Amino acid sequence: MQLVPVGVGTKKRRGVERLPTSHRLIEELHLMPFQKMQTKLPTRQWAIVGHPGSGKSTFAAQMQSPMVVIDADHRFAEVMRHVAGDVFSLSDNASDNVDAERIAALLRQNMVGSGVRTVVIDSLTAIIAPLVTAAVMDNDAGRNKNRAAAFKPKALAMRLLQDAITGYGVDTLWVYHLRNGMDAKAQAIESTSISTVELARLRRSLNMQLRVVEQSGKRGVVVDWARCGRSGLTLWDDTGCWKGMPERIEQAAYGGLTVEDMERIADSTPTSFVSAQAAVAWGFEQGAFNDAVHAQNAYDKLKGEKLPKTSSEMWKLWISEVRDRLQREPV
């Protein structure tokens, strides 16, 4: 039978038999135009944070290969021996790995048909931090009439990176750092190398946030947040190189959950947060604020006005604030 792209039915035209009903013919020839979606684990859209030297890059080496590494820290070669398959560099030009526009262009040029299963950004800090430093220096030098506008390149770079990296549907791992410091009262604090605002923006591209911890000479990973899985879990590494850890995390977070369970978790309102950053990110994601900066300012204002004595008090206040805003006119 000759296939001709005309109508349906079984009439003949000029000696050529027309096709039977299109969907029936497709079934007969097993040429389904779409593939049936199968229930499976969520794509690994993960971020991991930890102190320098805590093993974040080694963890990244345990992600699925082939992988392409945006080696912004220029140190991934040190852990390549832990990767089970092929590792591709984004570019031989080191500067390409810290330039959001070049990263997007190179991914657009090379990702399709590459077979890459994971994109590793190691680290996001090295891409974003120089933009923040430049903005602060320009503001301090009085070169900007609008001080807030100085940070626009950082916001645009973050958005460009997210859209470019997550658009291919492969696993992703965003790496950033924890650092120790002192607050205005000379109290020791721990902060992240990516601001609260940028982490809130990043969260739309994530379904899990991980944190490296160390205790009694052992290293582990805490699942601080999972969009549709279990959170608050700690898994300890007994291999020295995180071997099999991504699979263990998936089993711990998703094992035994039905699709309905995952949807329920994703739609539920939290009762607590691991940090103020997580609280702001959640509030922003609910659609209660114009942007992440608006969410951050609202959180700071609420804390300053109510002066909660404990974190749990602040979480209750913040959840109530977000709910109240959602009941008003949409932003």
Rank of each mutant, 00 (worst) to 15 (best):
S22C: 06
A61T: 14
A72L: 09
M80H: 02
G55D: 02
G15E: 07
A94K: 01
G9M: 05
K11R: 03
L25G: 02
E28N: 01
E17R: 05
D71V: 10
L41M: 10
A60I: 14
H74T: 08
S22E: 09
S65H: 08
P52W: 03
S65A: 14
F34R: 02
T10V: 05
G85F: 09
I26W: 06
G55Q: 10
G53D: 13
A61C: 15
S57Y: 09
V68R: 00
L31I: 14
G85E: 11
H30Q: 04
H74N: 04
H74M: 13
D73L: 11
D92Y: 02
Q45S: 12
E78N: 04
F76E: 00
G85M: 14
R18T: 08
L25W: 00
E27R: 06
I26P: 00
K40H: 15
D86W: 12
H82A: 12
G53E: 12
A84W: 07
F59E: 00
L90G: 01
E17D: 09
M63S: 03
H23K: 06
I26L: 11
T21N: 10
V16H: 04
R81L: 14
A72E: 03
L29C: 05
S22R: 09
L41R: 00
D71Y: 06
H23T: 08
N93D: 03
D86V: 13
M67Y: 05
L90Q: 06
L25T: 04
S65G: 15
T58P: 13
S54T: 13
P42W: 06
D71N: 06
K36G: 04
G50L: 11
Q64A: 08
